[in-house]
């Protein structure tokens, strides 16, 4: 059960990171700009770097390597998504979709904030049960 949850969370981040990385970075830059949070240089850096962070966190959580750090990274990412999408909703920004998975899947911001909050909660549960989460992981092989 915990192992499946870990694989699911890792898979979500792999899917999300790849969805952005495999297309032109300009598409994700447009999404970042829509949230109106950063200066231009920050938007550019985020569009270039953020998908790689998602992919790396996703792969390490999926494989079960450096699990505590990977899960903390996943929690930070979920937390960032909740804050960023939440502030956009509060400010009434005209977002038609969240842009979370590149061009692969579209969710409305209201939907995605619920999904991210659930993801954050599940990640917290996994962090509290690390001994179970490590089953069938590369950590259990190396440690």
């Amino acid at each position: 059960m915990y192992t499946l949850l870990r694989i699911l969370i890792g898979g979500i981040f792999i899917f999300s990171g790849l969805g952005k990385l495999l297309g032109p970075y300009q598409n994700f830059l447009y999404v970042v700009q829509a949230y109106q949070l950063l200066p231009s240089w920050g938007e550019f850096l985020t569009a270039q770097i953020f998908p790689w962070i998602e992919l790396l966190v996703g792969v390490f959580v999926f494989l079960g390597m450096w699990i505590p750090w990977g899960l903390r990274g996943a929690a930070v990412l979920f937390g960032i998504f909740v804050v960023v999408v939440g502030q956009a909703l509060i400010r009434g920004l005209p977002l038609e979709n969240c842009g979370c998975f590149g061009g692969l899947v579209h969710f409305k911001p209201q939907t995605v904030i619920i999904m991210d909050s659930a993801g954050l909660l599940l990640t917290y549960v996994l962090l509290r049960n690390l001994s179970y989460v490590k089953k069938f992981s590369l950590d259990s092989y190396f440690d």
Binding site: L56, V59, M65, L138
Partner: peptide, 14 residues
């Protein structure tokens, strides 16, 4: 290959 080396290989392959 230890854990750190394996991690590096994973990152490079990815």
């Amino acid at each position: 290959m230890n854990k750190l080396q394996s991690s590096l290989v994973i990152v490079l392959v990815l």
